[in-house]
Amino acid sequence: YFQGQLNAMAHQIQEMFPQVPYHLVLQDLQLTRSVEITTDNILEGRI
């Protein structure tokens, strides 16, 4: 994955969860590489 793709995914998640800091979303995406998994992590309070 290149950074631009991760940034696009992070923006997509931020639209759904504007209360979660962008850098935390991006940090999780770098591990998961998945909008779905990061979204689940937010919903389950891991982020």
Rank of each mutant, 00 (worst) to 15 (best):
G45M: 05
N41R: 08
Q30A: 11
E15S: 11
N7R: 10
I37P: 01
Q27M: 11
D28I: 06
V35S: 06
I37Q: 12
T38R: 00
A10P: 00
R46V: 06
F17L: 03
P18T: 03
M9E: 04
Q14P: 00
I47D: 01
Q14H: 15
I47R: 02
Q27V: 08
N7Q: 14
G4V: 11
A10F: 05
Q27T: 09
Q3G: 07
I47F: 07
V20I: 14
E44H: 14
Q30D: 06
F2L: 15
P18Q: 04
Q14Y: 12
Q19G: 12
E36Y: 07
R33S: 07
L26S: 02
Q30V: 11
M9Y: 10
M9C: 09
F17H: 06
S34L: 04
N7L: 14
H23Q: 10
H23S: 08
E36I: 09
T39I: 15
G4P: 09
L43M: 10
M16T: 06
Q27K: 09
L24G: 04
D40W: 11
Q19F: 14
N41G: 03
D40R: 15
I37G: 07
L26P: 00
V20G: 02
V20E: 03
S34E: 03
V20W: 08
F2Y: 10
V35T: 06
H11V: 10
N7C: 15
Q19M: 11
G45D: 05
H11K: 13
V25R: 00
Q27L: 12
V35Q: 06
M16P: 00
V20L: 10
D40V: 14
L6R: 02
D40Y: 10
I47Q: 02
L26E: 05
E15H: 12
H11A: 13
D28R: 03
F2M: 11
E44R: 15
L31T: 11
Q27N: 08
D28V: 05
P21G: 04
F2R: 04
D40G: 15
M16I: 09
H23M: 08
V25Q: 00
H23G: 06
A8G: 07
L29A: 00
R33N: 14
N7A: 14
P21A: 08
R46S: 04
Q14F: 12
A10Q: 04
E44P: 01
E15R: 14
L29F: 01
Y1P: 14
L43T: 07
I42S: 01
E44S: 15
V35P: 06
Q30M: 15
